[in-house]
Design a binder for these strands. Structure first.
Lengths: 203, 203
DNA sequence: GGTGTGAGTGAGTGCATACTCACACCTATG
DNA sequence: CATAGGTGTGAGTATGCACTCACTCACACC
């Protein structure tokens, strides 16, 4: 969309150590911001800490992203992209192996939030601030749209089935947020047991 | 649990206008805090505003709740209690009318988050800060335990059915957070359409 | 060598916020 | 009446934060 500058990037691959392009720095900054926002949430995450982790000054952070909100939106978008990609890969692999893609993506989601807790936490924080931050809300809606399209295309499931699939995804998120798997009570066991097919075929 | 003071409350019902007991004030304070936390989340909600809404000084707020965190936990607990009560009432009413309690509670939940958006938002914010705030996490776990017990007792559903029920509840939360009902795209329609029984009986 | 442009920063500014402290005011009881 | 203890506050303090500004430095091109 945005007409990327046709300037050659120089120091990216090798050679003279020193300045990066703004675009590269922006990407590094987003990666550095993800764990901070994931751990503390939007309001409690200080831009100073993000800048420090990225290895740049806070002043430069604000040149790359004019407001903290814009940085956060970029973080949310990147997290969503990562999620969708991971699921797509899982679905493709499942198709090759002849496994039901719906099941594969269900499992892939479980693995995803299990291994990459940060993505899940970003989702959670983004949901929470969505009502108050329209750009974040938009990013979340786009994320759901992409995920739904992917699920629909790969599984060919009905609307009801996809709703089920998403519902269980949301439950996984919440249970992970409160670390329900550490609790040894009936409710926790029941609500975190995803052994049973979480994408039941009804046909 | 805590040995409540057995002192008689005096100015509560009628008579001499003036001071309230600390317990009464605490309750008022929680009620005043709910909309503020709901709208802004934990970190962005200023105690000054909460105090102002409650009609007391900020200094007194901090006498009633030594830390903001403790106030927030009280808010979360009260929200949970309200939710559980509402659902219980819906279930009882359903029993009298011979309706399936599971369905009734499903509908009751939908109505609840539709009419009392604040409760939903509190849940969302509490989930988001749970990983970083153990007391909030505990409150959330207790909330799920109560809700699960209620659902189990009233519907007699299996673990799988209850898991389904919770999963759809979580989906409602998230869709409400991003106001998906305002969106006119397939994914939004599919994920917000709860006409079909969201508590399918499988037996 | 000179010059223009973009990368990058040290050192702030101003404001909001959680929490404190010394004090005033009710009111129930002896 | 005195006084003890609970209710309530005005006026702070200390800190942390988003964001800014004036400035330096690296590099590409002439």
């Amino acid at each position: 969309m945005v007409p990327v500058s046709d300037k050659v990037k120089k120091a990216s691959s090798a050679g003279s150590r020193s300045l990066s392009t703004a675009e590269e720095r922006r990407e590094e900054l987003i990666d550095a911001a993800i764990p901070v926002f994931a751990e503390k949430g939007y309001h409690a995450a200080p831009t100073t800490e993000i800048a420090k982790r990225a290895g740049i000054s806070q002043a430069y952070l604000f040149r790359l992203f004019p407001t903290k909100e814009e940085l956060f939106v970029a973080v949310v978008e990147k997290s969503c992209r990562r999620m969708v990609e991971t699921m797509a890969v899982a679905a493709s692999q499942a198709e090759k192996e002849g496994v039901e893609p719906g099941d594969a993506m269900g499992l892939a989601y479980g693995d995803l939030v299990g291994s990459d807790r940060e993505l899940l936490l970003i989702q959670l924080h983004a949901q929470a601030v969505s009502p108050a931050m329209p750009p974040v809300r938009k990013a979340m809606r786009d994320c759901f749209a992409d995920l739904y399209a992917l699920g629909s295309e790969r599984t060919g499931g009905t609307a009801d089935e996809l709703q089920n699939w998403f519902a269980h995804g949301m439950l996984i998120n919440v249970m992970t947020a409160i670390s329900a798997e550490e609790v040894n009570e009936p409710w926790a066991v029941a609500l975190t047991d995803f052994e049973g097919d979480c994408f039941p075929r009804e046909s």
